[in-house]
Design a protein around this nucleic acid. Structure first.
Length: 226
DNA sequence: CTGTGGATTTGCT
DNA sequence: GCAAATCCACAGG
């Protein structure tokens, strides 16, 4: 029989380097732009699904001054959002409008509840499986795969029951964020999408001019809240 | 291209 | 009861 060399690390075959918890133990508006260009990796029985993060939003915890009324943590812990109040680097996956999932990574030290919402990925590995997960025909528009928070969770097969609360900072975790050394330029910064409170806070970060981002590609100053 | 409405979970009033 | 960090199908210009 052939003899396989021992794999000393569970992540030996994954690209790049695993981001440690310390990466996420910071304010969400500092973590979100640093996540641009990093890889979100989901290890499944059918193979590895991975995408490069090209758009993310920061949601600030209730300890922040002023508090962020658009954040799920704004009114304190609930059964849904309790992972946000735990340690950094954990997945917060929730159902939005009864039909889609949204994927966040918790930030700040234990007890503080900031997070980053992942809004768009560029598919990097498992492109074909993502197409099947999305129920798309081969040859569908590429940006329909992972451009949008509900789309990317469906493409990677992420669900609340299976992934909410997962610690993403261990090498044997099914869900990880990894750094393969890709550099991105200064991010596009705009208000967040799809919210009704704090609509002008500049907490959406995206790789400028990237074809896979969702929503506006420029900062629009047309919105006046006064 | 733009706008509208339905699906359906979660939590607040 | 109703609003919400969305997506998709469909209607109309």
């Amino acid at each position: 029989m052939e003899q396989e060399p021992q794999i000393s690390r569970a992540d030996a075959r994954l690209p790049g380097r695993l981001l440690p918890r310390a990466f996420f133990e910071d304010a969400p508006d500092r973590v979100a732009p640093r996540l641009l260009g990093k890889l979100l990796v989901h290890r499944t029985r059918k193979g590895i699904l991975a995408g490069r993060i090209v758009e993310a939003e920061a949601y600030l915890g209730p300890h922040h001054n002023p508090p962020d009324p658009a954040a799920h943590s704004y009114r304190g812990p609930t059964p849904r959002n309790r992972v946000l109040f735990g340690p950094a680097g954990h997945a917060y996956v929730y159902v939005i409008y009864g039909r889609s999932f949204c994927m966040n990574v918790s930030c700040e030290p234990d007890g503080l509840a900031g997070c980053v919402l992942l809004r768009a990925l560029e598919p990097v590995h498992g492109w074909r499986q993502m197409e099947r997960n999305r129920g798309l025909e081969p040859g569908a528009p590429r940006r329909a795969l992972t451009s949008g928070p509900g789309r990317l969770t469906q493409a990677l097969g992420l669900t609340r029951i299976h992934h909410n609360g997962l610690d993403m900072t261990h090498a044997d975790s099914a869900l990880q964020v990894r750094d393969d050394g890709t550099e991105v330029g200064a991010p596009l910064i705009t208000p967040r999408i799809g919210i009704r409170h704090a609509i002008d806070w500049p907490l959406r970060f995206a790789v400028d001019d990237h074809p896979f981002i969702s929503g506006p590609r420029k900062f629009s100053s047309a919105v006046s809240s006064f």
